[in-house]
Amino acid sequence: MILNNEQIKRLYGQTARFYDIALLGYRILGVTKHRRRAIEMLRLRPGDTVVDLGCGTGANLTLLIEAVGDSGRVIGVDLSGAMLAKAREKADRAGWANVELVEADLVQWTIPQGTVGVLATFALEMVPEYDPVIERLAGELLPGRRLSLLGLKHPEKWPEWAVKLGIWLNKPFGVSREYERFRPWQSVEKYMKTVEFEELYLGAAYRCTGERRP
């Protein structure tokens, strides 16, 4: 089943309290290095403004703050207020005054002027309208600026039993069979210049970076 906005809010309202614990398995598999690589590909510098779409509980905040420094600006956007509350707790504990968190629908929200890079990790492949979102981002970013994606994908070469197991393990995050056809990296290729694409975990995930064409 593909979730609508209200179902997403309800699901993540329930999972927000243990979401970070559930991510431990991904960290053991080394997902942090792929988050870091996706951010590196944005070519951020101290003082830059960066947007984290579908920021959740703030898994990328530390890495983004490292990239833009105290003089930069990190804007996290998410549909779930419960997830953003957890992200705010992290920012407050760390004393990051330059973190702004916005509760909004990614389909309707537009990036502020001066945004240098946009990041989305484990987010857009769960948004049915990902294609117009990426098309809009390609128009809003200045030439040479980048969008980096990291997310799950259908592992075409996996045996069926392994695919079913992976879906079952990720069910708490809203993953279902219906999302198999969602391919945000193809929209990046359509509307931007793809500067990096890599399949991860034997095709079960991907990392992709697109650059606004001149």
Rank of each mutant, 00 (worst) to 15 (best):
L64D: 03
I8G: 01
G47S: 06
A97S: 14
T121I: 05
S148R: 06
F173G: 06
I65Q: 15
Y179M: 11
D52L: 13
L64R: 03
A204Y: 07
T62E: 14
K164G: 00
M126N: 01
E89Y: 12
G58W: 12
W158H: 07
V116T: 11
Q108D: 14
R183P: 00
R45P: 00
V163A: 02
L101R: 09
R10G: 00
K153N: 08
I111F: 10
P184C: 06
I8L: 15
A205T: 08
S71M: 06
L24G: 09
G47K: 10
K193N: 11
K190N: 06
T62D: 14
W158V: 04
V127Y: 08
A67I: 06
D48T: 05
W96C: 02
R93F: 12
D131I: 08
D48I: 03
E103A: 10
F122C: 05
V133K: 02
T15P: 00
I75R: 03
N4K: 12
R145W: 00
P132M: 11
C55L: 11
V116R: 13
V51P: 04
I134A: 02
E211Y: 08
R145Q: 11
G139L: 05
K33F: 08
F197P: 09
L79D: 04
S148A: 15
T115F: 05
R212G: 06
E125N: 09
L44Q: 02
S176H: 12
R43Y: 08
R212E: 03
G54H: 06
S176K: 10
N5A: 14
A120S: 14
E129S: 07
S187R: 08
Q186P: 00
I2L: 15
P172D: 08
A22D: 03
I21F: 15
V99C: 10
E140K: 12
A16M: 12
P143Y: 13
V195W: 00
F197C: 03
E180N: 11
K153F: 08
I28Q: 00
L165N: 01
R146T: 06
